[in-house]
């Protein structure tokens, strides 16, 4: 379908943010075609109304991660110092669990990195004995 060149001209003016009613070609067209001017009038009324539509922000993970990182860092920095005597001991507690022999011998070591009356941080590692 071939576009009406006058309609094309109208959109070109809107693309350039020029008021179409300043163009004699458009004014002559609208003066002769009441249907066309009614359609344009609806557009003229509705385009500014777009400004009132809410901006829908797409979820952005980077700012959320940034916020989480800041919260984590703040919590970490504000974490109370251990009381005197309650120093972290690398191997305050450990256990040896013999796993099925998929390998010569594999066991898991549980290590408490930090102990405090109010908190405890543990890690687990698997170790295998070589053949």
């Amino acid at each position: 379908m071939d576009a009406d060149p006058r309609e094309q001209r109208l959109h070109e003016l809107l693309d350039q943010r020029i008021d179409p009613l300043t163009d004699p070609t458009i004014v002559d067209w609208f003066s002769a075609d009441p249907t066309a001017v009614e359609r344009y009038a609806r557009l003229h009324e509705r385009l500014p109304a777009l400004r009132a539509l809410p901006v829908r922000r797409s979820p952005r993970l980077v700012p959320r991660f940034a916020i989480a990182a800041v919260l984590f860092a703040t919590t970490w920095l504000c974490w109370p110092e251990p009381a005197a005597g309650a120093r972290p001991t690398p191997h305050a507690q450990g256990s040896l669990v013999v796993l099925p022999p998929t390998r010569p011998m594999t066991f898991r070591v549980r290590t408490a990195l930090f102990e405090h009356p109010d908190a405890r941080l543990e890690v687990f590692t698997e170790r295998s004995l070589p053949r």
Binding site: D19, T22, E45, R46, P48, A49, A52, L53
Partner: peptide, 24 residues
């Protein structure tokens, strides 16, 4: 200035906003 003259007045009809929202 010309831009103010040619701008349509701010819509104050709720039904206009509904029309536009449906169209969009």
């Amino acid at each position: 200035t010309l831009p103010e003259l040619v701008a349509a007045p701010a819509p104050d009809r709720l039904e206009l906003q509904d029309e536009v929202a449906r169209a969009v």
